[in-house]
Amino acid sequence: MQISSRFTMAVHTLLCIEYFGKTEKVTSDFIAASVGTNPVIIRKLLIQLKAAGLIQVKRGTGGTALEKPLSDISLYDVYHAVDCVGGDLLFHFHEHPCPQCPVGRKIHIGLDDKLHQIQDAMEDKMRSISLADVALPMWDTVPVK
């Protein structure tokens, strides 16, 4: 199990937009240099973040801006926006447990609900942490819109 690195790159991207947005034109090239990845990857993230209503992308002159304050964007919002897990399931179950095996035939009965509980708990915790909470230890004051 591993959540895609798109999640941490998206958080990094949103924090760059907030931190530099008042003094710099924050483009995919600018963000990519900070994240340490290809601008094409950042552009794909920006499309997802825009579709989720977290950012606006300025055409023509370029640049991006947040649609709402960091305190109103949760880690879950970012996680959900960039579709970090396929089919909304964090855990991918092995495809073919043996129906003749007493464990294999009942593994879903014993494990499915537990895995859903774990994912629900993680997502609830993510909803309780804002990007402002993440930014606070990184810089002295969080820019306020």
Rank of each mutant, 00 (worst) to 15 (best):
K125M: 11
L66T: 04
L89I: 15
C101F: 05
E95S: 14
D133N: 11
L45F: 04
G53K: 12
S28L: 03
T37V: 14
H108C: 14
C101P: 09
S5K: 11
H94I: 12
E123N: 05
N38T: 10
R59S: 13
L46G: 14
I118Q: 04
M126A: 07
S28N: 13
V11C: 06
D112R: 10
R43W: 00
G60D: 01
F20T: 03
S4H: 09
M126T: 00
V82F: 08
C16R: 08
I118Y: 06
S28R: 12
I129T: 12
Y79R: 01
C84N: 04
L70K: 03
D124N: 03
K106M: 14
T61R: 10
H96Y: 08
E24G: 02
H96D: 09
K114H: 10
D29Y: 03
P39E: 11
H92T: 15
V85H: 04
A52F: 01
L54P: 03
V11L: 02
G62P: 09
E123I: 05
H96K: 13
H96P: 02
L70G: 11
Q48L: 13
S130Y: 03
H116D: 08
I31N: 06
C84H: 04
R59G: 08
L66K: 04
T27N: 02
I55S: 05
V26I: 03
S34V: 14
L14T: 07
I3F: 04
D113S: 10
E123R: 02
Y79N: 04
H80L: 06
S34C: 12
M1G: 10
C98W: 04
D77Y: 00
K22V: 06
F7I: 07
G53M: 01
G110L: 15
Y76G: 07
H108E: 14
H116I: 07
T27Y: 00
D120Y: 05
M1P: 08
E95T: 11
M9F: 12
D83Y: 01
V40R: 15
T61G: 07
K114G: 00
V85K: 07
K22Q: 05
D120C: 04
K106A: 12
I3W: 01
I118S: 08
P99M: 09
H108A: 15
D112N: 11
E67Q: 11
L66W: 07
A121W: 01
N38Y: 09
D88W: 08
M122V: 07
T27P: 00
E18P: 04
R105Q: 15
L75T: 05
L46R: 15
I107A: 13
S5D: 15
T13Y: 00
A33W: 06
A81P: 06
Q100G: 12
H108T: 13
L70H: 05
M1Q: 09
A51M: 14
R105C: 15
C16G: 09
I3H: 02
L66R: 04
A121L: 05
E67V: 06
L90G: 08
S128T: 12
T23K: 03
C98V: 10
Q100P: 05
H108L: 15
P99N: 04
A33Q: 14
S34T: 11
G60E: 03
Q100L: 14
L54Q: 03
G86I: 15
E67I: 04
A32D: 09
L54Y: 07
C98A: 13
F7S: 01
H80W: 05
G86C: 14
G110M: 13
I41N: 12
A81G: 08
V11S: 00
D113A: 10
H92S: 15
L111H: 13
I31K: 03
I3N: 00
